[in-house]
Computed example of a mutant assay.
Amino acid sequence: MTTSVSITCWRHGVQTMPDRAIFFDLDGTLVDTAPDLAQALNDLLGQYRLPKLPQSSIRPYISKGAQGLIQLAFANTPHSDVRSLSERLVAHYQRLDHRRARLFAPWPALLEQAPATVLGIVTNKPRALTERLLYVLELEKYFSVVICGDDHAEQKPNPLPLLKAAERLGIEPQHCLYIGDAKTDMIAAQAAGMRPVLASWGYFLPKQPEIERWPYQQALCEDKRATDYCVNWLNGLDCLSVE
């Protein structure tokens, strides 16, 4: 059962434009795709008769993209081979049905209550992979804008994709949250003038000392407090703490 939340301040009629928005990173922030990505990587390792890696070892490298996963699994691989192996990894991932992917705990309640006009996704994941994942999980209807890694010349940590997302919704960047789980997410949000918010359940090593130096303003836990924080933001309550 999902928790009921109330979002009311910007519901003044159908024609009223929202004045705040929330944008999400995809993998590791909005959706847990680690089981699928781990399977794809281990399937590739199996092709080379190499031992499989536990998901716990793979998970912290997911935010580094396909090339980061290849560098983890195929240590000392010549740079010229990384791209080829990355393409093979993506091919394995595309063959999966994504039925093991799931929304992280704070988001079902928020998506049920917040109109799509104030929610968006900005990811470095290619559009074809993003759209298929959203389709399988039946999430397309919840977001008015989805910016993918191959939509523009620049990707995060460049702020351009986030600025394009805010422009599409007609909302000033300073009135937007960006929730992500990687240093690149926090840098991009800060550079775009958005409020950087860290998903502390994301794909990184929890005890990495440098995380404290990432430029985020709030760290969220995977529970109802994260939902409430987002509701408060959309309702115009600038709560910087969820303690």
Rank of each mutant, 00 (worst) to 15 (best):
A192R: 08
G236V: 09
S4D: 13
N76V: 00
W214E: 00
H98R: 10
Y142G: 00
P161A: 07
T117S: 13
Q67A: 07
R102A: 10
F204S: 05
T8F: 15
S144I: 07
G180N: 05
Q113D: 08
S6G: 07
K183E: 14
K156Q: 10
A105Y: 09
W201A: 11
A153K: 11
Q71L: 09
P161K: 02
P78Q: 03
D150G: 02
V14K: 11
P209V: 10
D81Q: 13
L26H: 12
L198H: 09
D150W: 00
G28Y: 04
P78C: 04
Y93I: 04
F24T: 03
V90Y: 05
M1S: 09
C221Q: 09
V136P: 01
I211N: 00
L169D: 02
E138L: 14
Q55A: 15
I187D: 07
L103W: 11
P35A: 06
N235S: 03
R225W: 01
A21G: 11
A101S: 14
W214I: 11
A188C: 08
Q94V: 08
N158Y: 07
D27V: 04
T227H: 05
V5I: 14
W10P: 00
L237S: 13
T16V: 15
K207E: 13
G193N: 03
P35Q: 06
A128P: 00
Q218F: 05
P215V: 14
G149K: 00
L26C: 05
S4F: 15
E154W: 10
T130F: 00
Y93W: 01
T8M: 14
R127S: 02
G193P: 01
A101I: 04
Q15I: 15
A105C: 00
F204H: 02
E210R: 09
N235V: 09
